[in-house]
């Protein structure tokens, strides 16, 4: 009666590539760097976790939507503070998308013994580079 369960389904695992980052940790670069940083790290990590293409596209889409939302806020408000705030809020929202898609695959990867990689260096880099790029984009496009 358990014929389905006792049919072999395990395929050869691809050799482990780079170890993934802890998806929870991406909150820091997302907070300081904004939606682009969150989406970039989310995509790189999604690649490391071998997510299906649809989910990678969802992360990229969330990132694009986040940047668009921030630019819209920049276009309709005066001063720096709303734009900064929008960056934080959109960054966190994109990170929520990343977290919801990567939490399970990350836990499964740790079951296979692929411990988390350190995010401090790449996280700082992504926050600074993506944050500056976004600021530049807003200045050029809407200010």
């Amino acid at each position: 009666m358990h014929d389905d369960l006792f049919r072999p389904t395990i395929r050869e695992q691809p050799p482990p590539g780079k170890p993934p980052w802890r998806p929870e940790s991406i909150v820091y670069p997302a907070f300081f760097g904004g939606p682009l940083a969150a989406a970039t790290l989310g995509l790189l990590n999604g690649h490391r976790l071998a997510l299906p293409a649809g989910q990678l596209a969802a992360i990229a889409g969330a990132g694009v939507a986040g940047v668009a939302a921030r630019i819209t806020v920049g276009a309709f408000t005066e001063g720096n503070s709303p734009v900064r705030l929008a960056g934080t809020v959109c960054g966190l929202l994109v990170w929520l998308v990343v977290l919801s898609l990567q939490r399970r695959p990350f836990r499964v990867a740790t079951l296979r013994g692929h411990g988390p990689a350190r995010l401090i260096g790449p996280g700082l880099l992504a926050a600074i580079v993506c944050g500056l790029f976004e600021a530049l984009l807003i200045v050029v496009l809407v200010r």
């Binding site: 358990h2 006792f6 072999p8 389904t9 395990i10 395929r11 695992q13 399970r104 695959p105 499964v108 079951l111 296979r112």
Partner: peptide
């Protein structure tokens, strides 16, 4: 699976196979 073919209700075998499937992402 060879073990389960001989002892389909063996709790240790079932759990070991569950571990294997979980590690392969087949939750």
């Amino acid at each position: 699976l060879d073990g389960l073919a001989m002892a389909p209700e063996d709790v240790d075998l079932l759990c070991a196979y569950a571990d294997l499937c979980a590690a392969a992402g087949q939750l």
